[in-house]
């Protein structure tokens, strides 16, 4: 398998027509294209569900050849200060559109903008309506100040359903000289959990390991442990065999290369699912898991913190 570019880019829909799983949203966006006019838009939803893709496809359909000149993309979480709004965005907003009625400023992860920056943005949106439209994307619309929300048409992008993900993956597989087993497809859909970027990345990474993508390859490349692996680790700790559970931890950290927070997220899920732990202990452990994740965020070492967590689980069994 040759690396040409990430499949998320290679297979990113170039027109609204190619966007899967969003019939209602796409229909409305296409009506804007027909009218050659649109309001400001707010796209809200989790990662990998098509917000950026829809914005780019809309711009391409709207402007045709000259879309690059009329579309500016800024990621607010990389440049989140008020200066971005005051300088970069304003500069682009005030210049005339080329070969069209307006231009589009796409502000990705705009919920990362500080409230000050959002207020500055609100004025910019009003002043330059003659030359430009904004598309803001965010994970949570509640983090966008009300005055901005009221100026936008709001589109909610929920997680993609498994059929949409499968449809897209099949298209890629057909084009890339690959095959996939049934359990391989199921595993990708389980891991992706509605996130197309994750699905495509997982598929491409697995394709480096073999031309027939199956469940094992998928788990090998995903930054997820199999639920059983986490379960075994918990059971070993509960059974008082700390060294055995540490060995399982090492295989996840070192051989599979999972990060501490990947493992902690799954531990959280599996602790709640575990049948041998009483409800009161579960609640107590959730508190501890949160504490250890906080320490990781603060720069502590993932192996030591996870070991301490396993030791706490061992203690909980008594």
């Amino acid at each position: 398998m040759n690396f040409e570019k990430p499949w998320t880019e290679k297979y990113r829909p170039q027109t609204l027509e190619d966007v899967v799983g969003r019939p209602y949203i796409i229909e409305r966006l296409r009506s804007y294209v027909e009218r050659q006019n649109m309001p400001h838009l707010l796209f809200a939803g989790p990662a990998g569900v098509g917000k950026t893709t829809s914005a780019i496809a809309l711009a391409k359909d709207m402007f045709g050849e000259s879309w690059r000149q009329n579309f500016q993309e800024t990621n607010a979480s990389d440049e989140r200060g008020i200066n971005v709004v005051r300088e970069r965005i304003k500069d682009f907003a005030r210049t005339m559109a080329i070969g069209g009625n307006f231009k589009i400023i796409f502000l990705d992860e705009s919920d990362a903008l500080t409230p000050d920056a959002q207020n500055a943005l609100r004025r910019t949106m009003e002043i330059y309506t003659s030359t430009c439209r904004f598309i803001l994307s965010c994970n949570y619309s509640s983090k966008i100040i009300a005055p901005i929300q009221s100026r936008c048409a709001i589109f909610r992008f929920g997680p993609l359903d498994d059929d949409a993900i499968e449809e897209k993956l099949r298209r890629i597989i057909g084009n890339e000289d690959l095959t996939i087993t049934k359990d391989g497809m199921e595993a990708i859909k389980y891991i992706a959990d509605g996130d197309m970027r994750k699905a495509e990345n997982t598929l491409q990474a697995a394709a480096f390991l073999g031309k027939e993508v199956n469940e094992d390859l998928v788990y090998q490349v995903s930054s997820r442990a199999k639920p059983e692996e986490i379960g075994d680790m918990i059971s070993a700790a509960l059974g008082g065999n700390f060294l055995a559970s540490r060995k399982l931890l090492d295989s996840l950290l070192i051989e599979k290369g999972l990060s501490g927070d990947d493992i902690i997220t799954q531990l959280h899920k599996e602790i709640l699912n575990h049948e041998d732990i009483s409800e009161t202990v579960k609640v107590d452990l959730v508190d501890k898991i949160g504490e250890h994740e906080f320490r990781l965020v603060e720069g502590a070492n993932e192996r030591i913190q996870l070991e301490a967590l396993l030791a706490r689980i061992a203690k909980a069994s008594r």
Binding site: P6, A47, D108, N201, A205
Partner: peptide, 18 residues
């Protein structure tokens, strides 16, 4: 290159590693 923040870009690590 992938229209993501540097934080989200880390999702490409598995792909790059492989």
């Amino acid at each position: 290159k992938t229209h993501t923040s540097r934080y989200d870009a880390r999702q490409y690590h598995t792909l790059i590693l492989n």
